[in-house]
């Protein structure tokens, strides 16, 4: 289980990184936190010729305010997201996710951008991007472009990011004050990827929930937002009706431990609990 040979380079600027990648194309990989790339290298499941280590690009690290929203640099570690006062006060949904994310050593190594770039369907950050209408900022030699989260996640580990583009940050629009956020997931062991997860947020006005957002993860090839479910919750529809919307909206594949039907069931249970928490 030793990685096949590759070359390594650590560029000093984004331009240099992007230029290198464009020169080497599909035989090169950007290396961020390495928490997902390194295992596949060790397994020899991936064998790039060149690793472009972007960890020298300090401008890609950190959480800051941008206008009314929040931007998170691609190299921001999960642990830094967890500690960020900006995240705590303005992106409650992300804070709710933290306890579910891996383990201390992974949190200090893994990056926000890496997670969004990889787009594991069971990961929390991609689901947060979708739930919060984030824009994913991609950089190539042609410049920057922004992709809306809803247009970014295309399938299993498949995104709108083209081969050579570098994900440099994620921009979150402001979340309305008073919005309550819930992140629930079920994993067989603490810190494992979710077998089913739900992110939900809403503003509670009297007994009503407004601006409802619901994203499921771990149940499809990508995070899934179901507007019919959101509408149903906002309108106070009975849970059975909302469950029908879930059945219509998701069709999880079986995995080695559970069937798609089980995942759908768990998604419903989690949603019920999330809504209950939002109503409290």
């Amino acid at each position: 289980m030793k990685a096949a040979p590759f070359l390594y380079v650590k560029p000093k600027s984004i331009d240099e990184a992007v230029a290198l990648k464009e020169r080497h194309g599909a035989s090169a990989r950007y290396l961020a936190g390495g928490q997902s790339l390194m295992p596949v290298l060790n397994f020899r499941l991936d064998r790039p010729d060149l690793l472009i280590d972007i960890n020298g690009l300090s401008e890609l690290r950190g959480v800051s305010n941008s206008g009314s929203g929040v931007k998170i640099g691609a190299l921001t570690r999960h642990a830094e997201v967890a500690k960020s006062e900006i995240v705590k006060s303005q992106l409650a949904l992300l804070s709710e996710c933290i306890p579910h994310i891996a383990h201390p050593a992974i949190r200090s190594g893994g990056t926000f951008g890496g997670s969004v770039a990889l787009a594991d369907p069971a990961a929390e950050w991609p689901a947060c991007c979708l739930a919060l209408d984030a824009r994913i900022v991609l950089r190539s030699s042609k410049g920057e472009r922004r992709v809306e989260a809803k247009d970014y996640f295309l399938g299993l580990y498949d995104t709108a990011r083209t081969e050579n583009e570098l994900l440099i940050r994620v921009e979150f629009p402001a979340v309305a004050a008073g919005t309550k956020a819930v992140a629930l997931e079920l994993a067989r062991r603490r810190g494992d990827f979710a077998i089913a997860g739900v992110l939900a947020q809403a503003k509670k006005t009297g007994v009503r929930l407004e601006n409802v957002r619901v994203v499921f993860f771990g149940i499809s090839d990508r995070p899934v937002r179901l507007s019919a479910v959101e509408q149903g919750i906002a309108e106070g529809q009975p849970m059975e009706t909302i469950h029908q919307a879930i059945d219509a909206g998701i069709n999880p594949d079986d995995d080695i431990y559970q069937s798609g039907a089980t995942k759908t069931h768990l998604a419903k249970v989690l949603l019920g609990r999330a809504v209950e928490q939002l109503r409290q």
Partner: peptide
């Protein structure tokens, strides 16, 4: 509760790594 060497009908172990073969960790 967790551990199981899952083989398919072709005799291929389906979960022969530590991410998929679930050993009990401290929180369990």
């Amino acid at each position: 509760l967790f551990e199981h060497c899952i083989y398919n009908e072709n005799g291929q172990l389906q979960n022969g790594n530590m991410a998929d073969y679930l050993v009990p960790m401290p929180c369990e």
